[in-house]
Amino acid sequence: MIKFFEKIGAFTKYGCFVLVDFSKLSAETLYWIFVGPFKKKPLNTPHVFTQMVFMGIRSIVIVFFVTFFTGVVLAMQAAYQLAQVGAVVYVSSLVSISLCRELGPVLTALVIAGRVGAAITAEIGSMKVTEQIEALETMAIHPVRFLMAPKVLALLIMLPCLTIIGDFSGMLGGYLMGVFNLKINSALYIQTALKFLSLKDIYTGLSKSIVFALIISLVGCYQGIKTREGAVGVGEATTLSVVTSFILIILADCVLTGIYYFSNL
């Protein structure tokens, strides 16, 4: 029994340690993005742009596919229910609102966590294992400023953009389903969709995606820099990074939706 409590104690201690460590890294990274460039040294700008291309441009196709078919599925499921009350035309507003408020940001974030979060961890992790991080430190080049802050900034810019693309391609999927299968008039579909969709639906969705971007990139960097020796270490860290990001994204989504819901945003 005492062993059991000991284990809980050790686990809590470790959890607190990780939390403090992670917060330190996050604070440092945000410092180098928002304060450092004006006080000390600019960011590694070329790296920001290459990362934006990798994280953003190269993710468009996968984001498109995932959200497009989600839109199609959403339209079918909604039609199945709404047909019973003879309100099939409201498929359009249901699809657009649920995409912008919820599914667009979350699905995009999950896809990017799998693609970009894993890549961040694998890159930084293998740099750690091959002494490259230590080499940077020995040259008095701060790895957080040189390596991590550019990645976090790039994702902060690109994830909201991808979310917008996701929102649109999802709505396109719903639209095609609604017009060609459910035989809703095209103009009527668009009109209904826009009538119920307000600006706040879009910006609450985008504000979520900014939080998700921070989660994905910071967790990715943290797991990368904590990688243990060897190829096995890199693999473990990458898995851990994606799993942690997934859980935190869903958790953050729940909290944020709660806040918006109860504060009537």
């Binding site: 740099m127 091959t130 002494e131 490259q132 230590e134 080499a135 940077l136 020995t138």
Partner: peptide, 12 residues
């Protein structure tokens, strides 16, 4: 100071 690493540690 400069350091020459065992694995050379070039940024790949």
């Amino acid at each position: 100071f400069g350091m020459c690493f065992q694995s050379s540690a070039l940024l790949d």
